[in-house]
Design a protein around this nucleic acid. Structure first.
Length: 403
DNA sequence: AACCCCCACAACCGCCTTATG
DNA sequence: CCATAAGGCGGTTGTGGGGGT
């Protein structure tokens, strides 16, 4: 389809707005609302195109925007979110009240990007620039810092999602709800567009040369699912628990109702017993206060599926994967982990047919996703849920997230 | 004082998505 | 289902101001 120009360009003024023009625009919108932007200029007596008026209003004249220097907290937030979301300025702006995407974008391009570059951080990947000599200790330190920042951002998003889901009224009604849409994880070569972190995780996984490598390397994984808006959660509309149990008790089919908050999820997540179940794998459930799936009781041979029919793409499942033989069977040290090839991923379900399956092997050493077709997409080994849950909790619970 | 360069930021451009008839 | 309008978004450009020479 053809795209029509937003307005006739001939005879229309361009360039910087004058105070008089601003005044006209503000006065008109305050009195009539903006209505159709295309029709606005003539009604307001402006010789501008509607798009120009809209941008001027949304980026500059709107009363609910904050201008001026970015605070340290705002800078930190921008960096964290950029590490997680990339150049998705509107998504980032949704987490910075009263800041516009354009302002954040400009600030990033003119300040933060350069600052990161000076620190030896690639502002695109948020990873240390690799020099010919490999990673030095300072690079590792940077990596740890930025991985930490990125993980904090992830935790922040999760927390904010919980808050938003738990409340029907947004703190910032004019702002769009935080929307983190992650594409489904697929092991097939035709990976859909997705977050960089997801790509990174996939790449890191698929780049392992052999299955043996995959198995011998230590991976751990947290799955965060929109689920469980039952009585155990803080809010009847909560749909995200983090980190909530992945696997259920073996004794019964568990149905967790995900009710509709901001995210239009209204289906059940059903966890049926599987045909050749022999025992239970379990995951600690630290946030619920109820721990029916204590890790100490993890047994072998279980294969379970969590089947969910989801109605929209606003599902987030974030996965943390720790890689590297050096961490096998050692106490996880946060900085070490962060300095390692620690990656995150996620997936979403885009239609009713999607099925998300977490699968574990006989030693509970591997967890994996299986897509709707039952094809194993990835595995993560040697899971230590206690440690990882503790780690995530420490991020989620001890951070003060200024809004 | 004049010129040049750099920087910050507002504004624009073009593509994409969504809404509507 | 299709065409079109309108809005949203991210990349890029243009402009003005400040600092250096």
């Amino acid at each position: 389809m053809g795209r029509s120009p937003c307005c006739e360009k001939v005879g229309l003024k361009r360039g910087p707005w004058t105070p008089e023009e601003d005044q006209k625009l503000v006065a008109y919108i305050e009195q009539h609302g903006h209505g159709s932007w295309r029709a606005l200029p003539s009604k307001a007596g402006l010789e501008r195109c509607g798009k120009s008026c809209r941008l001027r209003w949304t980026n500059y004249l709107r009363p609910d925007i904050k201008r001026g220097k970015f605070s340290l907290q705002e800078e930190r937030t921008i960096i964290q979110l950029h590490a997680l979301l990339g150049n998705r300025w509107s998504a980032i702006a949704a987490h910075l009240p009263k800041r516009t995407d354009n302002e954040i974008k400009n600030y990033w391009n003119t300040h933060l990007k350069k600052r990161l570059a000076k620190m030896g951080i690639d502002p695109t990947t948020h990873r240390p620039k690799v020099d010919a000599g490999g990673l030095g200790s300072s690079s590792l330190s940077h990596m740890a810092q930025w991985e930490s920042a990125r993980l904090e951002a992830e935790a922040r998003l999760v927390r904010e999602s919980k808050l938003q889901l738990g409340s029907s009224s947004s703190l910032f009604p004019s702002a769009k709800p935080a929307r983190l849409v992650l594409n489904r994880i697929l092991a097939r070569p035709s990976v859909p567009p997705c977050l960089d972190v997801l790509k990174a995780w996939q790449n890191s996984w698929t780049s392992l040369p052999t299955a043996e490598d995959k198995n011998t390397r230590m991976h751990s994984m947290y799955a965060l699912m929109l689920a469980a808006a039952d009585d155990n959660l803080e809010s009847p509309t909560s749909t995200l628990s983090f980190p909530d149990p992945i696997l259920p008790p073996s004794s019964a089919t568990t149905a967790i109702t995900a009710t509709a908050g901001i995210l239009p999820i209204s289906e059940k997540i059903v966890i049926p017993p599987t045909t050749n179940t022999t025992a239970v794998n379990s995951v600690h459930a630290p946030t619920s206060g109820i721990d029916p799936w204590d890790t100490e009781e993890g047994v072998t041979g279980e294969r379970r599926t969590i089947t969910t029919n989801l109605q929209d793409d606003d599902i987030m499942v974030a996965v943390e994967a720790f890689m590297g033989e050096r961490y096998k069977n050692v106490q996880v040290n946060l900085q070490e982990v962060l300095a390692s090839n620690n990656l995150m991923a996620g997936l979403s379900s885009e239609d009713n047919d999607d099925v998300l399956v977490f699968e574990s092997d006989e030693n509970m050493d591997n967890l994996g996703f299986v897509d709707i077709n039952g094809e194993a997409t990835m595995n993560c080994g040697n899971t230590n849920f206690e440690e990882k849950n503790h780690y995530w909790n420490s991020i989620c619970n001890t951070q003060t997230w200024g809004l």
